[in-house]
Amino acid sequence: MRKIVLASALALAAAAMPGAMPGALAASTAAHPEAIDWSFNGVFGTFDRNQLKRGFQVYKEVCASCHGLHLIAYRNLKDPGGPEFTEAEAKALAAEVEIPILDEAGQPATRKGTLADRFPYQSQPDQKATLKSAYGLMPPDLSLIAKAREGGADYIHALLTGYDHEVPEGVTVPEGGNYNPYFPGGIIAMPKPMSDDQVEYAEAGVPRTVEQYSRDVSAFLMWAAEPKMEARKRIGFGAILFLGILTGLLFLSYRRVWRNVDH
C-alpha cells in the first residue's frame, strides 16, 4: 500500500514537471506553432549547412532591412557548426557592407567590412529613427530571437507563414496592424515580410516559396541564437558515455565495499 502511494506520488510529481515549466499556461493567447522536423532536433541533430546559407541569404535580403543581428560577426559565418562559408566567401560577404567610421578629419565616412565586423545594422542611427517613426517601436534584434520566444524556431516559422489566415469574427485589426494568430494577442506591427519568388536561391531544386524561406531563415536564426549547439551535443555525448561507464564502475566498487555488511 505504502509503495503504491509513494509510487503514485512520485509519478504525480514527475507528471507535473513538464507542466511546471514556465509558460505552460502563459502562451494560451496565441495559436500553437506546428512542430517542424528540424535537422537540428534530437541528440544527434546538426544544422544543415546549405539551409543555414540559404537562411543567411533570406536574412540579408529580407529581414536585415529592419532587424539587426548584432551578436553575429562575419567571422562567425565560417565557424565550425555554422553555415561554414569558406574564409574567402565570408570575407567577400563582409566586404559587401559599408561600416560607418570617422575619417582623419573627423568627418563621417565608411569603410569596407572585414571578418571582425559584426552585422552592421545597429550602428546606423538614421535607419533606426526611420523604423521607429514607422512602427512606433524598434523591430527587435534577431540574434537571440530563437531562444527568446516560446516555441523557438517553430514559432518563427509559424509566424512568418501565418499571415494569410482569415481574421476571425470579433477581432478588429487596427491601423498599422496585421493579423497573425501565432503572435501573442494576434495583432503584429510587422507586415507580411515575404512573398514567393522574392529571394533567388542559387541552389538548384530548392523551392522559392514563403514556406521554404521561412524554414531556412528560422534554422539560420536558431544557429545565430545557439552557435555552439553542435559542439555542445558532441561533447555531451562523450561526457555522458564517460559518466555512464564511470557510474557503472563506481556502483560495482560500492557493492564490493559493502558485500559483507548487512544493511
Binding site: 515549466m21 514556465p22 541528440v43 531562444k147 520566444r149 551535443k233 561533447i235 555531451g236 555522458i240
Partner: peptide, 10 residues
C-alpha cells in the same frame, strides 16, 4: 548538454 534552457524562461 541536451536541454540547457529547460528550466529557464524565454
Amino acid at each position: 548538454f541536451y536541454a540547457p534552457n529547460l528550466f529557464g524562461h524565454v
